[in-house]
Design a binder for these strands. Structure first.
Length: 946
RNA sequence: GCAGGGGUGGCAGAGCCUGGCCAAAUGCGACGGGCUUAGGACCCGUUUCCUUUAGUGGAUGCAAGAGUUCAAAUCUCUUCCCCUGCACCA
């Protein structure tokens, strides 16, 4: 049994001592591997391993391919979540403390986390130590934290350039907002980490017939306005008359409180909702006069607290009206107006749900209730379901019936009608929290605020986008199927807010009251790794834009830069050289959740800032580590701390399973029995290596050539898999199949020490990227003294790949299998054991016939050709006739009767032994066996004698 | 809704681009057997149905349906279902 913790500690120390992963420019080809740096809002759990491990596998492989590889790592701490953590600690939040304790963090450290900078420091250290334990080949001299003012200098420079190119623009933007704290709120600022989902609604003005004021109705479906029959208000709620943009409106009081953050609202007076009843207003679309009724389902705090009623297309409106009528409320002369035509219930499928055929096709919402086998008295959930169904089907398949919009799809009509209303000044857009109520951690309800001085990065800029698109053509994306998603993201990304009022990070250069948003400050930091260790000791004030202009853009003269910054010329030159050297061949790694932001943004930013030769070359997207089918997350309580998993399972077994047991893009599972399966195989290889010294060498036999053939084929397969990062293929071929082959080799009597050593040396080297500690240990056990990590990747010897030997070995297995099946049947039926088995190898004429037929596809011609050779016409016809049935399937046979005989005769001891009987191999034509004629090439006939 | 990715045997998961050697790799599970004082580990076998009183046979089959082809898990079309993302948030 391998003691992982001791070999891992040993090799990690050795690597550190020899500094083998610290890389500086030299005359080899460079290769820079960077993985999206971890956000330090949570200590390190298994979920983190995938991206960093995959990058490590690539880094280690490239190193063995002769590249000078740099794999650096930093830590991301800017933004608001860290502040939220510090605040929660200060508030003694027990949930958070419990989460942190899962990672064995001491009470003292937890209490110190009320300082956000301590959070960043502590957690970066914690994650870093987990990375060391995992054996990542990181050059730690270049590490940094994104919260460092030192790094901020670089970011300020970046934003200066983005600004000077006109990519920074200012405008209005809706955000989730806490009225109490006067802050924008994101997911981590809310109770239970709920993301406030902001949604657009249309607010339509309905002029009151008896007053110079409007009702403002909010709706998702402005296109249904022509079908409005009345307005619903909540009669027992308070409403207010208020002044917005010079006009008077009635809206619900609590709605006004929310809208206050979106509009200039001046409240004039407060009234009861009931006082609006009996009044009338005018539909701005068609001039119809609409009454106002109490709507029991109206939510006063949502939207404007006033809705237009379209009973033919909204089950709630229909039910509310019918219930009013049934309750004796005088609704006057209401006509339900159908304005969208659709085949009702078509998306529900299944005869079962359609048993109730709708009869009221003129009132679609009633028809939907019918389809769902209910009526106006349905429970609210049912109405909700009917509403969803109707909205979906009408929007998906419906055709408009309104004059001027006939035949249009609903979504097209929506755009047009909304625009028409807005152009006429009768509609505006308002925002609501779609999943309201969302509570801020302080206890207040989150509202939508429109901020009007928001800074954006304009990723929608046409020319910029066009350049990115054409650049993307040349970027290698692994796996290939992640490509479409990334292309879609490039198309889709538009204005993106880059600054916010609070959080850790760098001040926004164009307005120092803002902080640069934290995804925006981490788009080109990979370049920072190439020089930061050279600047570490300098006074920060010297890191002026001129320095970065020169180092990253080659702008200006080095002497001037030295003068302007006061930095030694030699250092500046080293920086420039280092950047140019490392930034040429790069690979960028990340998880799939970053496709729509970081991965896309980093391409844009590279294109905006650097020269073309430093633009991204390769992007690798990997899946996550899952736990019992679920994403590891705090809320599920299923987080496995990385350090715990390593202690329990060993870093290498863990790496093999989590990095290579599923393909790159798919998620991998943390499953202990899978890891134990890997450990058994590693133990097996370990035993093989330990036994190798006792083995004799000597001449090579059939099975030795077979193992060499397998080995060289394996080298090609593993290398190809690595080139495209097909890591599953890599471990299947590199580890699992190697074990299977070795077992077979030994079973067939293989025992050549030289052969086994050759095999193991290559396998161990190929395993190095996924199991580096194990590989080092085996490498040294095999008698080598240098680091496996720095060895050359094995190269196959094509001469040793031998199809014939492999197919011969397959033949042996096939015969064994057939013989076993046949003799088992005999034993079962006759209750007698087989005395011996006669194997008859097919004649050469059968091989000729098969080859001829596979070529000509002509049975007749084949038969006559065979007859010329003096073969009995009857058996020729019988044999070819049988073959001809699958004429399109048969393949050429390369092996002759003599060769086939030799192979089987050589293996008869092995076959006999494993079947517990004796084997006799004979040739068709010489054999006296009654079954001899059944023999076919590579399918010898068997006679079981009992 | 929009965008992207999927749907394969008890489960997980290859294969699909480049159609045929695919009843479909591999792993796990289950069942039967061996080994063992016993358990674990390990080894052998079975794990769609039918057929064969000796094996290399046949049918059905890779979400559903249709098509192309001598041949489809693989190519085309339609439908259904699932997952992920949708922004100022890391």
């Amino acid at each position: 049994m391998i003691d992982y913790s001791s070999i891992e500690r040993k090799w990690q120390e050795e690597w550190e001592k020899a500094k083998i992963f610290e890389s500086d420019p030299d005359d080899r080809k460079s290769y820079l591997v960077t993985a999206a740096f971890p956000y330090v809002n949570s200590p390190q759990h298994m979920g983190h391993l995938r991206t960093y491990g995959t990058a490590d596998v690539l880094a280690r492989y490239k190193r063995m391919q002769g590249f000078n590889v740099l794999y650096p790592m930093g830590f991301h701490g800017t933004g608001t979540p860290i502040l939220a953590i510090a605040k929660r600690i200060k508030d003694n939040d027990q949930d958070l403390i419990r989460d942190l304790k899962m990672f064995h963090i001491s009470d003292l450290d937890i209490s110190k986390m009320s300082d956000p900078n301590y959070v960043v420091d502590y957690i970066s250290n914690e994650i870093g130590s987990g990375m060391r334990l995992s054996g990542l080949s990181i050059d730690w001299r270049r590490t940094f934290k994104s919260t460092e003012p030192f790094f901020g200098k670089f970011i300020e420079w970046q934003f200066g350039i983005l600004g000077s190119k006109g990519y920074l623009v200012q405008g209005k933007h809706p955000v989730g907002w806490c009225p109490n704290e006067n802050n924008a709120v994101g997911m981590h600022d809310t109770l239970h980490d709920v993301e406030p989902e902001i949604e657009e609604e249309t607010a339509i003005k309905f002029r009151l017939s008896d007053e110079d004021a409007y009702l403002m109705c909010s709706t998702y479906r402005p296109e249904t306005i022509d079908g409005a029959t009345n307005i619903f208000v909540k009669s027992d709620a308070k409403y207010v008359l208020c002044r917005i943009d010079g006009q008077n409106y009635y809206i619900a009081k609590s709605a006004a409180e929310s809208l206050f953050y979106q509009r200039q609202i001046e409240v004039l007076k407060e009234i009861d909702g009931s006082s609006l009843l009996k009044r009338k207003c005018i539909n701005p679309f068609n001039g119809e006069v609409l009454p106002i009724f109490p709507g029991y389902f109206v939510k006063e705090g949502l939207g404007t607290g006033t809705v237009m009623s379209v009973p033919a297309h909204a089950p709630f409106d229909y039910a509310a009206l019918e219930r009013l009528k049934a309750g004796g409320y005088d609704v006057g002369d209401i006509k339900y107006k159908k304005i969208i035509d659709v085949q009702i219930g078509q998306s529900l499928g299944g005869a079962e749900t359609m048993q109730a055929r709708p009869t009221h096709l003129d009132i679609p919402s009633l028809a939907y209730l019918e389809v769902l086998k209910t009526d106006v008295n349905a429970v609210e959930d049912m109405l909700e379901f009917a509403t969803k169904t109707q909205y979906r089907e009408e929007s998906h398949f419906g055709k408009m019936l309104i004059k001027g919009y006939e035949g249009m799809s609903e979504s097209e009509a929506r755009g047009r009608i909304k625009k028409k209303l807005a152009d006429e000044g009768n509609a505006t857009t308002i925002y609501i929290i779609q999943n309201a109520p969302v509570m801020c951690r302080c206890g207040y309800k989150v509202v939508v605020k429109i901020v009007d001085n928001q800074w954006f990065l304009n990723y929608g800029d046409k020319q910029w986008k066009a350049t990115v698109k054409s650049t993307f053509e040349g970027i290698r994306v692994l796996p290939e199927r992640a490509r479409n998603g990334l292309a879609a993201a490039i198309d889709w990304i538009d204005l993106r807010a880059v600054a916010r009022a609070q959080g850790l990070g760098t001040r926004f250069p164009l307005d120092k009251s803002f902080i640069i948003e934290s995804l925006s400050d981490s788009t080109i930091y990979m370049a920072w790794y190439t020089i930061l260790h050279l600047l570490r000791d300098l006074d920060m004030e010297r890191l002026k834009p001129e320095l970065f202009d020169y180092v990253f853009l080659g702008k200006g003269g080095i002497e001037d830069v030295a003068k302007a910054t006061g930095i030694e010329l030699g250092i500046i030159k080293k920086c420039r050289d280092s950047f140019e050297y490392w930034y040429t061949y790069t690979s960028r790694h990340s998880g799939p959740d970053l496709i729509f932001n970081h991965l896309t943004m980093q391409i844009f930013n590279h294109v905006a800032i650097f020269d073309e030769k430093y633009w991204p070359k390769q992007i690798v997207v990997n899946g996550m580590v899952m736990y019992e089918g679920e994403k590891m997350s705090k809320s599920l309580g299923n987080i496995v701390p990385l350090a715990d998993a390593i202690r329990k399972m060993g870093a290498d077994p863990l790496r093999i399973v989590e990095l290579t047991s599923s393909d790159l893009f798919s998620d991998s599972e943390y499953r202990e029995n899978a890891i134990n399966g890997v450990k058994e195989r590693l133990d097996y290889l370990f035993e093989v290596v330990r036994g190798v010294d006792g083995k004799e060498s000597g001449g090579l036999g059939h099975i030795d050539y077979w193992l060499y053939s397998k080995l060289n084929r394996k080298i090609d397969a593993v290398t190809a898999a690595m080139e495209s990062l097909e890591l599953r293929e890599y471990s299947t071929e590199g580890l699992y199949n190697s074990v299977i082959e070795l077992r077979h080799y030994f079973e067939r009597g293989g025992s050549n020490g030289v052969v086994i050593r050759d095999f193991m040396q290559a396998v161990v080297l190929m395993m190095q990227p996924m199991a580096p500690h194990f590989a080092e240990e085996m490498w040294h056990l095999l008698g080598n003294s240098k680091f496996a990590s720095l060895e050359k990747w094995p190269i196959s010897d094509k001469e040793m790949i031998n199809d014939k030997i492999e197919s011969e070995e397959n033949l042996v297995l096939l015969v064994m299998e057939d013989a076993k099946r046949a003799s088992d049947l005999i034993v079962k039926k006759s209750q007698k054991a087989a005395k011996r088995i006669v194997v008859v190898v097919a004649s050469d004429w059968k091989r000729n016939a098969q080859n001829l037929l596979s070529q000509t596809k002509n049975p007749g011609a084949t038969i006559s050709k065979i007859k010329e050779d003096g073969i009995d016409p009857a058996s020729a016809a019988a044999y070819v006739g049988k073959l001809a049935r699958e004429v399109n399937r048969i393949r050429k046979v390369e092996i002759t009767q003599g060769e086939e005989f030799a192979v089987l005769d050589g293996a008869k001891g092995y076959i006999g032994e494993s079947l517990g009987t004796s084997i006799f191999v004979e040739k068709e034509g010489e054999s006296k066996s009654a079954r001899a004629e059944r023999a076919a090439p590579l399918k010898p006939s068997l006679e079981i004698v009992f």
